[in-house]
């Protein structure tokens, strides 16, 4: 999820405040597919990613492209508006009650000596790692991936060599949204959810992205691990309701020590 946010910010310098709500939509899609068509979320995440890609592409083409060069506060207003619309649409369609998606893997647990491993969480983790690696390879090895990096590196230079920058932005926004759609479908079986989850999910992923360093995919990934470990430890040693205390303290400490984040590059 944080990887998708990083891609969008890194390429367009636009902060996607609707990110958490896009994730919630990924979760509800997985839920619909499971309830109506009986497709396990571990199979349907590809469908959710595709639908969210289309949503991200549409939002970029129809809305964000108009304000790519506008100041940050205007972008924030627009993206907050998109977030509110997505959240309230979900509320209207699915109601405020928390729901949960059942997966065949959810009941499985492996015992490794004194440790027990929840198979559903393990699969979520493995697929997330695989998707991150696939995205990194796509950006490095393919022509389209390179044009995305070029447009991120120097948008004017990209126009000079004849890259259709708005189109590249739409693809990048779509991929970012697809990441979060896949993330939603993959976490739906391990986390009960409701429309109001969107905002807190956005906040958590901003935390991760800032810790990792704005615009760094590796940073987003490492930041995600750090934050989730910190929150789990906080939940065990303090109280579950205090886990955010630990992750946001971590944010403040890291910003004090490394203002650009763990893997961020300093910008003048």
């Amino acid at each position: 999820m944080a990887v998708g946010l990083t891609l969008i910010f890194g390429v367009m310098r636009v902060v996607n405040f609707a990110h958490g709500d896009m994730m919630v939509w990924g979760m509800y899609l997985a839920w619909l597919l499971a309830a109506r068509a009986g497709i396990d979320p571990y199979a349907s995440f590809a469908v959710c990613a595709t639908v969210l890609f289309a949503l991200g592409w549409g939002v970029q083409r129809g809305l964000v492209q108009r304000i790519v060069d506008a100041p940050h506060e205007m972008q924030i207003l627009l993206m907050l508006g998109v977030a509110l619309i997505l959240e309230n649409l979900a509320l209207l369609l699915f109601g405020p009650e928390p729901v949960r998606v059942r997966s065949a893997l959810g009941a499985l647990t492996w015992y490794l000596g004194p440790l027990y491993v929840d198979v559903a969480r393990l699969v979520t983790f493995v697929v997330a790692v695989a998707l991150t690696l696939a995205l990194a390879a796509f950006l490095r090895r393919t022509d389209l991936g390179r044009t995305i990096r070029a447009a991120a590196d120097n948008p004017y230079g990209a126009r000079v060599v004849g890259i259709d920058v708005p189109r590249v932005y739409a693809v990048a926004f779509g991929i970012g949204a697809a990441c979060v759609g896949a993330a939603g479908a993959l976490t739906a079986p391990v986390l009960p959810f409701q429309p109001a989850l969107g905002l807190s999910a956005s906040v958590v992923s901003f935390n991760i992205v800032i810790i990792g360093g704005m615009g760094s995919l590796l940073g987003a990934f490492v930041g995600g691990l750090l934050v989730s470990v910190a929150e789990s430890l906080g939940a065990v040693f303090l109280r579950p309701s205090l886990k955010e205390l630990v992750s946001f303290s971590l944010l403040i400490v890291i910003l004090l020590l490394r203002p650009a984040g763990l893997f961020g590059r300093r910008t003048p």
């Binding site: 390179r146 044009t147 990096r149 070029a150 590196d153 120097n154 230079g157 990209a158 000079v160 060599v161």
Partner: peptide, 16 residues
Amino acid sequence: RQLFPTMTVLENLELG
């Protein structure tokens, strides 16, 4: 010049 500063020389050339 407007190159792509974080990308390699080869990647810059190929993007042309």
